[in-house]
Design a protein around this nucleic acid. Structure first.
Lengths: 152, 152
DNA sequence: CGGGAGGGTCAAGCTGCTTTACTCACACAA
DNA sequence: TTGTGTGAGTAAAGCAGCTTGACCCTCCCG
């Protein structure tokens, strides 16, 4: 069943995601990041420019501001982010990455690209990207990308 | 960014799955199945032959037997499955589908194929299937398919 | 007839969220 | 000056969907 026929497309998509993400997190855990879930990496991505407020982070992650606050609490306790006074005042606080988080971003990026390169030995990754992007566009439109949330 | 470049492959996979599954469940909800989650559909698939024991169902779904038992409780209460005495005796009970569940399977299958046919207008679904199957095979091997679990 | 293996179930606990409700800092208008 | 609205943060409780742990049956086989 090289063609993938006989298995629902939706199932195949889920399985592909699950396996790739699983392999990614396994490798991250091997190099010492067993304490960070994928959502933490997403948070780092969302904060990596100039940082953001907890509410902005919530929007980018697609969760409530309370949930974002909890994630920030957790990451702060473990030294991955800091809360600084916000330059524009108010009650706002600017959540910024520490060096530890930036290092994680670098390692995670490297692992992702290694994994993709390895997969390129078995599949046509260019075609996969292209068709996935088309599907995403068909279902979501062209205006940006929605937050990636845990699936069911 | 028709090519999908600039976005991580893993992210794109997750987004694709999330959007397709979301559209699928939305359509199912529209025709009256708002009370059934994807895992229930997976359970129906796992039971659709001659049924199975709760423990077998647990293996096929990749959860503990207690969790499978809860799912069966829930589905039984709502009339989608029955517990019958198992032909081979013991403490075993055979969980079998009712007509309501078989009807759901038929409707869900129809919706999946409609959705896929629509997406075929925007993307090369054959290529997508093929490359996904290759990725799955590269990461999991050829021996069957692992259970699809909620992702992170 | 006495273990023990396999299957089912009860109960408690946990995680990662959500909902509800509140507090605080500022802006701006009366 | 007051006061009132708005946006950000936070505290507390609740909840879904699992897991872990413990136990109870039924049968088989020595």
């Amino acid at each position: 069943m090289e063609s993938g026929g006989g298995v629902e497309l939706t199932f195949l998509l889920g399985l592909g995601f699950q396996l790739v993400l699983g392999e990614f997190t396994r490798r991250l855990a091997e190099v010492g990041y067993a304490d960070l879930r994928p959502v933490h990496g997403m948070a780092f991505q969302a904060l990596k420019g100039r940082g953001a407020t907890a509410t902005e982070l919530a929007e980018r992650l697609g969760v409530t501001k309370q949930a974002a606050g909890q994630i920030v609490d957790d990451l702060e306790r473990r030294g991955y982010v800091r809360r600084e006074p916000h330059p524009e005042g108010g009650r706002r606080k600017l959540v910024v990455l520490t060096g530890a988080a930036r290092e994680h971003l670098a390692v995670a990026g490297r692992i992702l690209h290694e994994l993709e390169a390895e997969l390129a030995g078995s599949a046509d990754i260019g075609a996969l990207r292209r068709e996935l992007a088309r599907v995403v566009r068909a279902l979501h439109g062209q205006d940006g990308l929605p937050p990636l949330r845990p699936v069911w």
